[in-house]
């Protein structure tokens, strides 16, 4: 009898877990992608005047900003007469290349990819352009190296994010300072571009001494905190400022600094997520460079509808990044993610 009860409990929990995973929660990615869900051919017409546009978002659902971006696509898909599915690459560039090619073969009209590896996606996009020229290809958030192989790009300029952060430090420390940089996931496109943008400005400002720079293995707060703790050990009070590539990483850095009583260190991070807003509000973070994913998604869909109607659309579309500080934080709507 005990065994039966245990088996029943296990079966129920498994069913619950599976049901939960298969649910249609708008904020949630579908399962990893070798088998994308069949797009709805649903009722109604698209903005392009035909059936519902079949689109697929190829990105890493283990990255919360990308998962949130998908949620924004889902939020607005009906307005644009679309059905946006997702193919999860889990941060694997090879899998992403495979996913986009599979999506083209399955008849998606629009493929949106957030490149894991800019160069890696080019080959897949090139193959699609050669074999399925009617498929609309775009990049999101980060761009690929060969613009000729995609129809348009919408997103932030990660290089610009690094430049904006550097300028925020220059404005705050006109005479320079000693600082460290804690980067995002090593080798990730955003990490590379944010670092490059930051250094492109800082190389012309010798009054700033970059004491050290280290990247994390993943976009993980605990890894950022561990690096910050090691930097505090090594450089101690010499650290006057920290550039962190993402707001949730800054949370870990703030913990590390506060544990050593270093409350005056100036922190600038990128993303403009809710944690970043909170940290700017309570004064533990000086500024967050904000990326608005809702705008990104809506702009992408607007351009896709136009392109599918045969209209010309601009090739590169950067979304403006805002510097959110305590002085202007009330001018912005606090983000949901």
């Amino acid at each position: 009898m005990k065994k039966k009860i245990t088996a029943l409990l296990l079966a129920m929990s498994m069913a619950l877990a599976l049901a939960a995973c298969g649910g249609g929660n708008p904020g949630t990615p579908s399962s990893t992608g070798s088998n994308p869900s069949t797009p709805s051919t649903g009722s109604g017409t698209s903005s392009a005047g035909g059936d519902v546009i079949k689109a697929v978002y190829c990105a890493s659902m283990n990255n919360e900003s990308q998962a949130f971006a998908y949620k924004m696509f889902q939020k607005h898909e009906a307005e644009f007469g679309m059905k946006v599915d997702v193919l999860d690459d889990q941060g694997d560039a090879a899998k992403q290349a495979e996913n986009v090619q599979q999506a083209a073969a399955q008849g998606y009209q629009w493929i949106i990819a957030n490149p894991c590896d800019a160069a890696g996606l080019v080959t897949a996009y090139k193959a699609i352009k050669e074999n399925n020229p009617d498929v609309l290809l775009s990049t999101y958030s980060a761009d690929i190296t060969e613009e000729a192989y995609r129809d348009f790009f919408v997103g932030i300029n990660d290089t610009e994010a690094g430049i904006t952060a550097a300028n925020a430090f220059i404005e705050k420390f006109p005479n320079g300072c000693k600082m460290v940089e804690i980067g995002g996931q090593a080798g990730h496109n955003a990490q590379i571009l944010r670092h490059d943008g930051f250094m492109s400005v800082m190389k012309d400002h010798p009054e700033f001494e970059i004491l050290d720079c280290q990247n994390t293995e993943h976009w993980a707060s605990d890894e950022a905190q561990a690096i910050a703790e090691d930097f505090v050990t090594k450089y101690g009070d010499d650290i006057e400022a920290v550039f962190c590539h993402w707001d949730n990483g800054a949370t870990g850095i703030i913990n590390a600094l506060q544990a050593q009583g270093m409350n005056d260190v100036l922190i600038v991070a990128v993303d403009g997520c809710r944690a970043g807003f909170d940290q700017v509000s309570d004064g533990t973070q000086y500024a967050t460079i904000m990326n608005n994913f809702e705008t990104d998604s809506v702009d992408s869909m607007t351009l896709a509808v136009k392109a599918l109607k045969g209209e010309e659309v601009p090739s590169t579309n950067f979304i403006k990044m805002d510097i959110v500080t305590l002085d202007n934080i009330n001018d912005f709507t606090a983000p949901e993610w």
Partner: peptide, 16 residues
């Protein structure tokens, strides 16, 4: 399965 469940219950967001 657990990773997907974590995404579901958190809505993909870091919980503070």
């Amino acid at each position: 399965v657990w990773s997907a469940a974590a995404m579901l219950i958190s809505d993909g967001k870091t919980q503070q």
